[in-house]
């Protein structure tokens, strides 16, 4: 019944924003909070409800990096690749995490839907470079590849009990 309840929320969100198409971006943001991505049929529904074309909604949604059209993992790790982080070797952090999660080139989300790794232009935490943020909430700064891998292992240990003993591999 997951879907239906989420969908009820979509209706509620549309009502909250008065079906005003100027509010398309906040509406999409709120909807993405519910689904963790923007399903096509929901975008089409939003378009029709707001009286604009589905192509228009897709055009807006696809413009902003915040929106995603495929389901993301439970933990979305944004790795900062701003100037400060870049010169402090954020690339090594990404590589270490990708290796730990066995992500293939171009693959951003793990098969078990636990992790998504993205790079972002700047988290504004340049004083702490290199930095990452998990689920837009907690910033981890002054990272090293080892620290980054440990963060992931800790989550893995919490989420999949017994599957991952820290320090293995």
């Amino acid at each position: 019944m997951e879907n239906a309840r989420t969908f009820e929320k979509v209706c509620a969100i549309l009502n909250e924003y008065n079906h005003n198409y100027y509010q398309l971006i906040p509406i999409l943001e709120a909807v993405q909070e519910e689904y963790r991505y923007l399903p096509e049929e929901v975008m089409a529904f939003i378009a029709i409800s707001l009286g604009i074309s589905p192509a228009n909604v897709f055009g807006v949604a696809s413009f902003y990096s915040h929106f995603t059209f495929t389901p993301k993992g439970k933990y979305v790790i944004k790795v900062c690749d701003g100037t400060a982080c870049h010169v402090k070797k954020s690339a090594d952090i990404i590589k270490a995490m990708e290796e730990q999660l066995e992500l293939q080139t171009g693959q951003r989300t793990t098969g078990d839907m636990l992790f998504t790794i993205e790079t972002v232009s700047c988290l504004g935490a340049c004083g702490l470079a290199p930095a990452i943020v998990i689920n837009d909430e907690i910033v981890y700064g002054l990272l090293t590849p080892e620290k980054a891998v440990k963060l992931i292992k800790d989550i893995q240990a919490k989420e999949v009990p017994g599957s991952n003993e820290p320090g293995e591999h």
Partner: peptide, 17 residues
């Protein structure tokens, strides 16, 4: 029926989704 989609080097004219 068609609109702009994506941005930067992927900028395109496309039907919905």
């Amino acid at each position: 029926a068609i609109d702009f989609a994506y941005s930067g080097s992927e900028f395109a004219v496309a039907p919905c989704f």
